[in-house]
């Protein structure tokens, strides 16, 4: 007798847990052949709010981790991803990619994780400055994460766009709430399983599946989201985000093109979700002493 395959239930990822959507709703994305991929959670605004709460809770301790430690964890993500490579390739193929293309995408995603792991303790040095002010102060400008970042992942690919948007955001110490590609959502939830086993604290990354159209307003209207990264293709949605961002002066950043190219990686993607903080620290000024010791 043939063994009956165990099918995976794809759930969402909030605060390090895998709950079903509180709404109990589902949707069934199809691949190009018209086959249903799975019953995915059709996340609600309440799920979105729960995810923001989890992200805010995680932000403090994540941003205060040492840069070195964040780098270690991001590298661990690459290791876990490598170990599950075949699973991702399988899902990409199921979603309609050819096997060589799927393999190339997974390879690129893994390498991108390693790339950003390396940046965790370097971008600060590249983008910070010591400012030679005309007074007796040690004045420096350093980067700090913006806080909770909403991410609407590229809709045109499943894995590489997801990794390319999440990794620079968390490398910089932010936490995030991510909406996966609506029609290509399988890898996003499997990637959540990778994150859950990578020593990444729960809540740093939260991943929802569902409708961009339904949730777009939640992203710009939520008062506890500091910035939104829009990597979708819908100009109307991008405009909506920018218009609604005035409620708490959100930073809205848009990437186009799906971030699929090997060149779509740079520390400037980290910089996009950083604030510049300038500190004026006093320097004791003792009369008579000069630097010509």
């Amino acid at each position: 007798m043939e063994r009956l395959e165990i099918l995976k239930t794809y759930k969402i990822f909030i605060g390090g847990q895998f709950p079903r959507t509180e709404s109990g709703r589902y949707y069934s994305p199809m691949n190009k052949k018209g086959e249903a991929l799975a019953n995915m959670c059709l996340s609600s605004k309440k799920d979105h709010r729960n995810a923001v709460v989890a992200a805010r809770k995680a932000f403090g301790s994540w941003s205060e981790r040492t840069a070195f430690n964040r780098g270690q964890i991001l590298y661990r993500i690459a290791e876990m991803l490598e170990g599950r490579k075949s699973q991702f390739v399988e899902e990409l193929v199921k979603q309609g990619a050819t096997a060589p293309k799927a393999t190339a995408e997974v390879d690129l995603a893994i390498d991108r994780c390693v790339y950003y792991a390396g940046w965790c303790d370097k971008y600060q040095q590249v983008f910070s400055s010591v400012n030679p002010v005309a007074s007796s102060h040690f004045n420096f400008s350093a980067l700090e994460p913006m806080g909770v970042v909403g991410i609407i992942a590229p809709q045109t690919n499943s894995l590489i766009g997801l990794v390319s948007t999440i990794l620079p955001v968390i490398a910089g110490g932010n936490s995030c709430v991510v909406l996966a590609a609506e029609q290509l959502p399988l890898c996003a939830i499997t990637f959540a399983e990778v994150l859950a086993t990578s020593d990444l604290p729960g809540g740093v990354v939260n991943i929802l599946t569902g409708s961009e159209k339904e949730l777009i307003d939640a992203f710009h209207a939520h008062m506890d989201i500091n910035a939104v990264l829009y990597a979708g293709e819908n100009d109307e949605h991008a405009r909506k985000l920018e218009e609604g961002a005035d409620c708490n002066v959100k930073r809205i950043i848009r990437y186009v093109g799906g971030l699929t190219k090997t060149t779509d990686e740079s520390p400037y993607y980290i910089n996009d979700f950083q604030e510049v903080k300038t500190t004026w620290h006093p320097i004791e000024h003792v009369g008579g002493a000069t630097s010509s010791y």
Binding site: S141, M146, N226, N248, E275, V276, K277, T278, T279, W280
Partner: peptide, 24 residues
Amino acid sequence: AGVVWANTYNKFDPTSPFGGYKES
């Protein structure tokens, strides 16, 4: 906050970046 002054306040300099977080 975007600027923090220690033991001084309202100091400005052309070399020193100025600007806010959040609704600033």
